[in-house]
Design a binder for these strands. Structure first.
Lengths: 338, 338
DNA sequence: CTAGTTTACGGAATCGATTGCATGATAAAT
DNA sequence: ATTTATCATGCAATCGATTCCGTAAACTAG
């Protein structure tokens, strides 16, 4: 009824829709006076082109999907902020999906995106993701895909990560230098890339310092906060308890802190801790937690910049199959003091 | 090139596009055998209807916009999780925007949404929002709008909040019972609804307990973390320093904690604190922070349920102009112990 | 057995913006 | 003055799915 579309503008201006369209798009074939008239009316009526008509015609949606495994996590929020800051400037919109660390959900989400709904996807795979046929499908359909943080090596595209191996190594060395002899490593799932890399760094550090190591020092945790606290509590009460803990993801450090509160153990005296985490309030914890923080916002920026280059310029080649590393920083605090 | 659309399916099946469309949509005018044939081929070829063609034709985008003032905030993340859990089930997609507490950004975002891009909007207004013509525009264009948390009373639609007045009152009473005589109230902006309600509750509690009050006990903070820490530090060093603090939003409590670390003040001995916050790790802070936590996930669920009812059923009336209150909970911890 | 009804499907218009092609008008060139 | 080039604009097709309308065939009723 109150539809302000090109046809309506054309009527009011006694021009054809094509002229109006061209004028609004600054086509060289339209005279300056006409352009001015058209734009004036468009502005007056607050005309906004219908995005779906446009997408249908152009085969471009100006929309990007962001898929994250967890929403309640500062890291991912910061990445999305970074992505949004670049893409919004260029008129892109973000569809954000949470895979809840579940491959099946991830699959379902991807299936929503195979039909041109988005021009590209930026994602961090779920910790369960081991089969990748759904990701290959995207590649087949020529939908640009960028991974960050939790990447999938097998898909030939650009991936953004941080120096996980090195910081895993550094963190372990830091604990070793603090006097730890028995350092456990907490991880969510062996499937995630970052877990593996961080684990490798930790292993290497132990080896380089001639420290003992046992397979069961690598603790595989679950998705459930409750279960993790239980598991950690049991571990801390056991004879085998560690004197140092390196948590590969934030939520495991938190679970450990909760567990520690139940025991009478003191950090850092009885147990030192370091965690990969982007919590801004690590400093306010009791005790302040030593963290390795990732340049989350910057990762978002870089993903988006690369994508925008690919999407807004003509004849861009496919996204290069390479891994780009942005360095993380270690923030030493009370929890690991020697 | 590799386009699998209705026309292509029709060709392969030697039927007309209209028949294929009807078959896929389970129209009663199509015979069972035909439906089976069509669906089989559609499945085999993994046909996905083009969402934009559909949106153009139906004037429905199956997309909802969520606008939040801040992304790095557990509360909003939880709300979005709640919204997504309901809407995804019904085939809706979420465009998520961050207004960064900036009305101008908010305006710009809204302008993106006036052209049918979304079927509805769920939002929490920015702390600056005082002019509301952009919100009225949505109403004019008949785009369903639901507010949560930071609402705009003037727009006649449904709003979801928590019992801000009561919990503000409770929190103040709790501090008073702990022995506080000089309780300051921290707020982000007088513009936000929740700040005002919480403030009223606090004021009433002071009055009911015959405690003194001065206008400058209500501290108006800024968006900048740095500036807030500075401001709080100065306040804590001054002669006028409070013995109790009620923070109306999480980030102000955090700024205060940072400030307190610089001084030698002890919580709760020298200063007691309570904050509105959905941080899950309030318990792990030093000292554990007494919080009033909102049912964020549930708020998301309720917003989405109401919206889905409005959007998926026929002849639904406009969203009622009313405020729905979901209760918050107070979690008493160390920071306010008497 | 015919008139009327139902079933099952096809044709074509539609949603709104874009764009290849055509054309009328004006200016420049011969 | 006539031809050619240039410019500004209109017409109509297109993107893919949906749906109003129409109709051949099958079926029912009298």
């Amino acid at each position: 009824m109150n539809e302000i579309n090109i046809k309506y503008l054309a009527e009011r201006l006694k021009m054809s829709p094509s002229t109006v369209s061209r004028a609004l798009n600054d086509s060289y074939e339209i005279s300056e006076p006409t352009k001015i008239k058209v734009k004036a009316l468009a502005k007056e009526l607050n005309y906004q082109p219908n995005p779906y008509a446009r997408s249908l015609r152009n085969h471009k949606s100006k929309t990007i999907a962001v898929i994250i495994p967890e929403r309640i996590n500062n890291f991912f929020s910061q990445v999305i902020d970074g992505i949004e800051d670049i893409t919004q400037e260029l008129g892109y919109h973000l569809l954000v999906y949470n895979s809840h660390e579940d491959v099946e959900k991830e699959r379902k989400i991807i299936s929503f995106l195979l039909n041109g709904r988005v021009d590209a996807i930026v994602m961090s795979v779920s910790s369960q993701t081991s089969t990748i046929d759904h990701l290959e499908m995207l590649h087949q359909k020529d939908i640009p895909l960028i991974f960050f943080d939790r990447i999938c090596q097998e898909i030939p595209t650009t991936k953004f990560i941080t120096n996980d191996y090195e910081t895993g190594y550094q963190a372990a060395v830091h604990l070793i230098e603090g006097g730890c002899k028995k350092i456990f490593f907490l991880l969510l799932s062996k499937e995630i890339s970052i877990g593996r890399e961080r684990l490798k760094g930790y292993r290497q550090a132990l080896m380089d310092h001639n420290l003992p190591f046992a397979e069961d020092w690598v603790i595989q945790c679950s998705q459930s906060e409750e279960a993790n606290i239980q598991q950690m509590t049991a571990l801390l009460y056991s004879m085998e308890r560690p004197d140092g803990i390196l948590a590969s993801v934030e939520k495991l450090a938190i679970a450990t802190y909760h567990a520690i509160r139940k025991t009478k153990l003191r950090i850092p005296q009885d147990l030192k801790m370091v965690s990969f985490s982007n919590m801004r309030i690590a400093e306010l914890l009791n005790p302040p937690l030593t963290t390795i923080s990732q340049p989350a916002y910057e990762i978002g920026l870089e993903c988006a910049k690369l994508l925008m280059k690919k999407l807004t310029r003509k004849n861009q080649p496919d996204l290069e199959n390479k891994v780009i590393v942005l360095p993380s920083k270690i923030h030493i605090r009370e929890s690991s003091k020697g």
